[in-house]
Structures are given as C-alpha cells and as structure tokens.
Amino acid sequence: MENILTWISAHQQLLYIVILMIFVGIEVIGHVPSVLHTPLMSGANAIHGVVIIGAIIVMGKAENDNYLALILGFFAVLLGMLNVVGGFVVTDRMLEMFKKKK
C-alpha cells in the first residue's frame, strides 16, 4: 500500500497530465460532425502510434546479446511504425476526398 502512495506522489506530474488530457481529448472533438467520424478515428489511431517511442527505447536499451529482447523489440518498432505510417497515410487518403471542388 505504502509503495502505491509513494509511487503516486513520485508520479504526480504524470497523473495531472492524465487528468488534463482526458478533458482536452473530450473537448477537442466534442463538436465533430458525423461525416468526419471515420477519418477522425483513423487520425486518432495514427496518434496512438506514439507507442513506438517506447518501442524505440526498449530496442535501444537492449543488450547486444539479449536476442529475445532484440527480436521482440524489433517487432515492436516494426508494428509501431506500421501503425504510425499506415494510420497517417490512410487518414490522408480519406481526407483527400473531402477536397472542395469548384
């Protein structure tokens, strides 16, 4: 129990970010028209690809002879990159079609 309390006070900055981001996240997309639901979902999908940063850190820290960590990390970076690049490109392709034509 004590551990948890120490951990909370040690990470209070992060916890504040969590609380604020929950409200920001809800606020920024509050008025989205239903037309944009799919592209917005896809865009958000690309943004959570930020998890790749964790994968890069894992990979970069792994010891040279720890093959299990290297292989798992390699796949983590690969899949994270798929999420990021694929997500942004797909979203762009969807939105490309919303261009106003005169």
Partner: peptide, 22 residues
C-alpha cells in the same frame, strides 16, 4: 508511465479520451 515519457502519455490519453467520446 513506464518511461516517464510525457509525449507518450499525452498522445495515449488524448486518444483514449477522444476515442471513448467518439
């Protein structure tokens, strides 16, 4: 949280909240 990395936290929670609302 794991890496004390604020951008992962911001991006993750932002999508978590926006995704739930969506």
């Amino acid at each position: 949280f794991l890496y004390d990395n604020k951008v992962m936290l911001t991006g993750g929670i932002l999508v978590g909240a926006a995704g739930t609302l969506l």
